[in-house]
């Protein structure tokens, strides 16, 4: 049996995300949102993203518990909680599909899927570089703050000076890195063609059909059978 049989094509996940957006903006009622969340969670579990689903369930539990308890709290706290809880609940359905995308797709898979959709390689380059360099930036930041600590520059003087002490080496480093990476990329042909070739192409499987059909059903239902609050 294909071990990847429950892995969705990244294009499907994108489609599901758009689909969920359509569902929520159809204002069909809360039940469709819950169904959407359940579908998303199920797909994540099927793909093995257990921790993500656990986090989801935990967050949901905290919000529900908080909503129940907040009636006993003083007004300002209740207001603050309501604002927080509202923002979570309203965006949770679509956030679940964002989680599905993020926790079950590698950068390469995503790039290959986008290029199969005819998005030019150069359009994807900034995002690739972004993901590649976040860890390096964090390392640089740590090295710079260590150096600042050794020089006794932390905690002394005004905060604006400290911001400068962090920014100058950090941004100069960013410039240098950009130049070096550009050369390394150009000398291996980046930008020679509009799209690249890939060894593993994204592929639609049974699970993709099932997922899309489920979402389509949800969209149709939300539009045709809205439930008033």
């Amino acid at each position: 049996m294909d071990p990847n049989r429950f892995r969705l094509d990244p294009r499907t996940k994108l489609l599901l995300l758009v689909g969920m957006n359509v569902v929520i903006y159809s204002f069909g009622g809360a039940r469709y949102l819950y169904l959407g969340v359940a579908l998303g969670a199920a797909l994540m579990l099927a793909a093995g993203a257990v921790r993500a689903v656990a986090l989801l369930v935990a967050t949901y539990a905290v919000l529900v518990a908080g909503d129940a308890l907040v009636t006993f709290a003083p007004d300002p706290v209740a207001e603050a909680w309501n604002a927080l809880s509202l923002s979570f609940f309203v965006f949770l359905p679509t956030a679940v599909y964002a989680m599905l995308l993020v926790t079950t797709t590698t950068i390469t898979e995503a790039a290959a899927a986008l290029e199969k959709l005819r998005v030019p390689t150069l359009a994807i380059v900034p995002v690739l570089v972004l993901f590649r360099f976040v860890p390096a930036l964090i390392q640089d930041f740590r090295a710079i703050t260590s150096a600042m600590r050794l020089r006794g520059l932390i905690g002394r003087g005004n905060p604006f000076r400290m911001i400068e002490f962090v920014y100058v080496p950090l941004l100069l480093g960013v410039v240098r890195t950009g130049d070096q990476l550009t050369v390394a990329a150009l000398t291996r042909g980046l930008g020679l063609h509009r799209n690249r070739t890939f060894v593993t192409e994204p592929r639609f499987r049974g699970i993709d059909v099932v997922a899309i059909a489920a979402m389509a059903a949800l969209v149709v239902a939300a539009r045709l059978a809205p439930v008033d609050a």
Partner: peptide, 12 residues
């Protein structure tokens, strides 16, 4: 004082 491998991290 540590003179780092990448001295650029400590010029302010």
């Amino acid at each position: 004082f540590v003179v780092m491998q990448d001295v650029n991290h400590q010029l302010f």
